[in-house]
């Protein structure tokens, strides 16, 4: 693959680029507190403007996640959520919506299902892409071809510590988009974006023309506005889980999360979301 995605993800980023609009990628832990709630949340946040939905498949030992998503994972596991259950949810959702869906997890649940079997079932259910937090291109040898053969995008994380060589390799291994971690650290809402972020984004742009989604620590409309001129999408996760934790009922949680997505997407549409002149110049192949 050359990184050009034929999935719903690729088409959505192409549409966003055409409109010059910043995308919003929304993460939610599947099965927190129950898969039925997750189904309602996904449908509601699509209506509220989420461009891509990341469904977190809970894992018992989420080393890259902060306290908020750790708690969400614990609740989801307590409610009996499994990878097979999340794939069934994807199938139900796909009957009702065309929103791009990314499965977001750690490697072991996928490994135990079997990589081939997972690829087949995820594609059949209607998923569009896969991101495994503890799987880098070095260890993804057999995984990428299996997913690509089923038409699934493989999304890798890039980090502030990634060397130029690593950034190039991560970009070459990714399809759909590249997920850039805004700071060293775990997931979780923060007050401010790091000052070095624009420089980091510039370094990544030098090695790839893939759409760039920036996540970790993004919670407020102001953060999204700032990203407008820099990235192709903002990823929000813990801030949505925070809404769920604060809500008294499942219905209230659905409403609160949708409202937060609406606010963030409004900032994406009306903030500094027009492309800077720098971007087209960087689209030229190196």
């Amino acid at each position: 693959m050359d990184g050009t995605s034929q999935t719903r993800i690729g088409r959505r980023f192409a549409e966003l680029a055409e409109r010059g609009e910043l995308g919003l990628v929304a993460y939610i832990t599947a099965g927190d507190p129950a898969l039925e709630t997750t189904e309602q949340i996904v449908l509601a946040i699509e209506q509220a403007g989420a461009d891509v939905v990341e469904l977190g498949v809970p894992f018992s030992d989420p080393i890259a996640d902060g306290p908020t998503i750790q708690r969400a994972s614990e609740r989801a596991l307590r409610s009996g959520t499994t990878l097979a259950g999340v794939l069934a949810l994807v199938r139900r959702l796909r009957a009702k919506t065309e929103v791009p869906l990314v499965l977001f997890s750690y490697f072991n649940p996928v490994l135990q299902m079997g990589v081939e079997r997972f690829a087949e079932q995820a594609a059949a259910a209607g998923a569009d892409g896969v991101l495994l937090t503890d799987l880098t291109p070095e260890e993804a040898g057999p995984v990428r071809p299996a997913l690509h053969a089923r038409g699934l995008d493989t999304i890798f994380l890039a980090a502030p510590t990634s060397t130029p060589e690593r950034l190039r390799r991560l970009a070459e291994s990714s399809t759909g988009f590249l997920y850039l971690i805004s700071r060293t650290g775990v997931t979780g809402a923060r007050e401010q974006l790091p000052a070095e972020l624009p420089e980091l984004i510039r370094r990544v742009r030098q090695v790839t023309t893939l759409p760039l989604a920036v996540g970790f620590g993004i919670s407020q409309p102001g953060h999204v506005s700032v990203l407008g001129g820099l990235a192709d999408a903002a990823v929000v996760g813990s801030a949505l889980v925070d809404e769920l934790e604060r809500a008294a009922t499942a219905d209230a949680a659905v409403a609160a999360i949708a409202e937060r997505v609406r606010l963030l997407k409004a900032a994406a549409r009306h903030g500094m979301s027009q492309r800077t002149p720098a971007r087209p110049a960087l689209q030229e192949p190196q």
């Binding site: 080393i63 890259a64 490697f107 937090t133 503890d134 799987l135 880098t136 070095e138 260890e139 890798f156 994380l157 890039a158 980090a159 502030p160 510590t161 990634s162 060397t163 690593r166 991560l170 971690i181 060293t184 650290g185």
Partner: peptide, 12 residues
Amino acid sequence: GGRYVPETLMAP
């Protein structure tokens, strides 16, 4: 064996 970690830890 191998190296199954988040990208942030790969360079370190």
